[in-house]
Simulated assay, not measured.
Amino acid sequence: MLIENRPEPFNEVWHSTIFQAKQGQLKSLKKYLYRAFQQATLTAVRQEKPIFNWLES
């Protein structure tokens, strides 16, 4: 998964993380950003390869 293919979830994560860090809401920026990028990767993969919806078929 390359960030260049689907940058939207990663941009959202980056901006929200920086915003929360500036407000002093994060204990560890490194750990939070790592976990947030994991979730953004899952989101990007799911957008690229949607799950088969058997109810609509």
Rank of each mutant, 00 (worst) to 15 (best):
P7F: 04
V13C: 02
Q39P: 12
E8I: 12
E48H: 06
Q20F: 12
N11C: 13
E12C: 09
A36V: 03
K31P: 09
K30Q: 09
R6N: 09
H15E: 11
P50R: 00
R46W: 02
S16M: 14
E56I: 09
M1G: 10
H15Q: 15
E8T: 12
F37T: 05
H15C: 12
P7Y: 03
Q38R: 10
A40L: 00
G24V: 05
E8A: 15
F52Q: 06
Q47H: 06
L26F: 01
A40I: 00
A36S: 07
T41Y: 02
V45H: 10
T43P: 01
R35Q: 12
P9D: 03
L55N: 09
V13S: 02
K31E: 11
A36G: 06
F10M: 09
Y32H: 08
E4D: 14
Y32D: 10
F10V: 05
P9L: 01
N5I: 11
Y32I: 08
K30L: 08
G24I: 02
L55R: 13
R35E: 15
Q25Y: 15
T41N: 07
K31H: 13
A21D: 08
L42S: 08
P50T: 00
Q38L: 07
L42M: 06
F52P: 02
F37D: 06
I51V: 11
Q39W: 11
E56T: 13
N11E: 15
L29C: 05
L26Q: 03
K27Q: 14
H15D: 14
Y32L: 08
F52E: 06
T43G: 05
P9G: 06
A40R: 00
L26T: 02
P7S: 02
A44S: 02
E12P: 05
V45S: 06
E4L: 10
N53D: 10
L55D: 07
K31C: 11
G24M: 03
F19L: 14
T41I: 03
L26E: 00
S57P: 08
L33P: 01
N5P: 05
L2M: 14
N53S: 10
L29R: 05
A40F: 00
R6Y: 10
F19M: 15
P7K: 01
S57F: 13
S57W: 15
T17K: 14
Y34H: 07
N11Y: 15
P7L: 01
Q25R: 15
N5T: 12
P9I: 00
N5W: 10
T17V: 14
R6D: 03
Q47G: 06
R46G: 07
F10P: 04
E4P: 06
A21H: 07
K22V: 01
E48D: 04
F52W: 02
S57T: 09
E4V: 09
A44L: 00
P9M: 01
N11T: 15
E12K: 13
E8D: 14
L33S: 03
I3F: 05
G24H: 01
E56A: 11
S28Y: 01
L42E: 15
K27P: 08
W14H: 14
I18S: 10
Y34C: 11
L55E: 09
K22I: 02
L42G: 04
G24E: 07
I51P: 06
E4S: 13
T43W: 08
H15T: 12
E56M: 11
Q23G: 08
P9F: 00
R46F: 03
Q25T: 10
K27T: 08
